[in-house]
């Protein structure tokens, strides 16, 4: 608690513009854009298969997946003013999807959201869609899911594990975006200094936004645990024996 308080007070004094959000149309060269599509494709295919299997096995999953899709879509195109940076950025939401429905479903949900945003909201590009799917969908979902499962396996409470999963989703996404952008635009410049420069430029915006995303993830998971614990049991988020104590 004291560390969080000290950190947020410290953020008052970190005043710098920041870099974030989806990669815009045309920023990545064609070869890099194609590479990220190739990286994203198997995850999307596996995610669609998983979604079909889930939908066949249990019709009750449909409202949950629909809810998560709506949440990821809204959250990932909602510019939130970040006072510590004086700019706007957005959370990802894929951590919640990964925790509740699995990381592969998180990839599919983010793919649909990113495609709609690129097509109709000029938010992210179509040529850079693959890179955005990899950063927000693949890395965001899997980072959140691994952190959540890892913390739960060592006995961390549901809310705390979800908080850190949200944090990992947000920070993982933006670290990946830094690497993708650096790799694409560096030309003959060395990769690591540029990637580090972009990642550090993210810090004033994404540190507080990551905390917000963690809080949001913890809030949603605990709310669902109160309202529909059976759904969490069904998705393997909590054990049936521990529903009352999670």
């Amino acid at each position: 608690m004291k560390k969080v308080l000290a950190f947020t007070i410290m953020m008052h004094f970190v005043a710098a513009p920041a870099y974030a959000m989806h990669i815009s149309e045309g920023l990545l060269p064609l070869n890099w854009a194609a590479l990220w599509f190739a990286v994203a494709a198997p995850f999307v295919v596996l995610g669609v298969r998983r979604l079909n299997t889930l939908a066949k096995d249990d019709l009750a999953m449909k409202p949950l997946v629909g809810l998560l899709a709506a949440v990821v879509f809204i959250v990932s195109c909602m510019p939130i003013p970040v006072p510590t940076a004086g700019t706007c950025s957005h959370p990802c939401g894929t951590g919640i999807a990964a925790i509740l429905a699995g990381p592969l479903i998180g990839v599919v949900i983010s793919t649909v959201s990113l495609l709609l945003q690129a097509l109709f909201l000029a938010h992210g590009g179509l040529s850079t869609l693959g890179a955005d799917i990899v950063s927000m969908g693949v890395v965001g979902s899997f980072a959140g899911w691994f952190v959540f499962r890892g913390l739960r396996s060592v006995g961390t409470s549901l809310a705390l594990a979800a908080f850190f999963a949200g944090l990992a989703t947000d920070w993982g996404t933006y670290l990946t975006t830094s690497a993708e952008l650096a790799a694409g635009i560096r030309g003959t410049a060395p990769f690591w200094p540029l990637a580090t420069k972009i990642a550090l430029a993210f810090v004033p915006t994404q540190l507080p936004l990551g905390i917000l995303e963690g809080a949001m993830t913890a809030g949603m998971v605990t709310l669902l645990q109160r309202k529909r614990p059976d759904l969490l049991v069904k998705m393997g988020v909590v054990k049936e024996s521990k529903v009352a104590h999670a």
Binding site: M11, H12, A20, G86
Partner: peptide, 23 residues
């Protein structure tokens, strides 16, 4: 932070203003 920050408060969408700038 919102009221006492020393950061410039343009609140521009950083996808336009900054990613494009560094690129």
């Amino acid at each position: 932070c919102f009221f006492f920050t020393r950061a410039p408060r343009s609140y521009v969408g950083v996808d336009e203003a900054v990613l494009e700038k560094i690129a």
